[in-house]
Structure formats: structure tokens, C-alpha cells
């Protein structure tokens, strides 16, 4: 399965919505999208994982790389996700402590 990547701006955040599976083969398109957002001056980025069926360690690494990139500009990176299977991977690897975690896009406006 391929990965569909789309972006839209929600308030201060650029939301990168993913649909499909994030693995060693598809993660580069996520990396490119994060880089593009930063290059156009959008330093608050939220990645919506609610329609992601699978996320591997390469995908986690790309998200951490994105976090470091936006932090260089005093930005933020959030994760939007309600799916327990994906949240479990974040909890196990301790990443819930370094990303801002949101349940929905609406929460970005709070």
C-alpha cells in the first residue's frame, strides 16, 4: 500500500495528513513534506495519523527529524491520533513525551 500525503493550514499549524502505511519505502514522502512546510516558513506542524494503518521505526525517525527541524526555528510539531495501535508505538518508545499529542484537528485551535 502506498502513502497518500496532503497538507492544509489550520490556524497557526500546517496539518500533514497521512493515509496508508508509513515504512522505510514510503517515509521519504513524509520527510519531503515536512521539509517543504519548514521551507515555506511554517514552523508549527501537526501530522495527522488517524488514517495510518501502520507506522514503523523509520517513520518514527522521520517524525523526530521533523521535530528537530521545526525546533531550530522555535516551532512545534504535534501528532494527531486517536488510534490505539499507533499511540501504543509512541508510548513504548517514549515519544509521547516529546511530541504534542492531539486527539483531533479541532484541538489545534485550543
Amino acid at each position: 500500500m502506498e502513502l497518500e500525503v496532503s497538507t492544509r493550514d489550520v490556524g497557526e499549524y500546517t496539518v500533514i495528513k497521512l493515509k496508508g502505511e508509513v515504512d522505510i519505502y514510503t517515509a521519504p514522502s513524509l520527510r519531503e513534506t515536512i521539509v517543504d512546510s519548514v521551507e515555506r516558513g511554517r514552523y508549527k506542524v501537526a501530522v495527522d495519523l488517524d488514517e495510518v494503518d501502520f507506522l514503523d521505526s523509520t517513520g518514527l525517525g522521520v517524525l523526530v527529524g521533523g521535530l528537530k527541524r521545526v525546533k531550530q526555528h522555535d516551532g512545534e510539531m504535534g501528532i494527531i491520533c486517536k488510534q490505539e495501535n499507533i499511540l501504543r508505538i509512541f508510548r513504548i518508545t517514549g515519544l509521547t513525551k516529546i511530541f504534542k499529542m492531539f486527539k483531533s484537528t479541532e484541538d489545534l485551535r485550543d
Partner: peptide, 14 residues
Amino acid sequence: DPKPLAQQGRGLFL
């Protein structure tokens, strides 16, 4: 535990 900001090394940990 993987270092929080490491970009690699989580596969074996998982």
C-alpha cells in the same frame, strides 16, 4: 530506552 531525539535505533527496541 532510545534517546528521545535519536532518529534511529528504535527498531530493535520495538
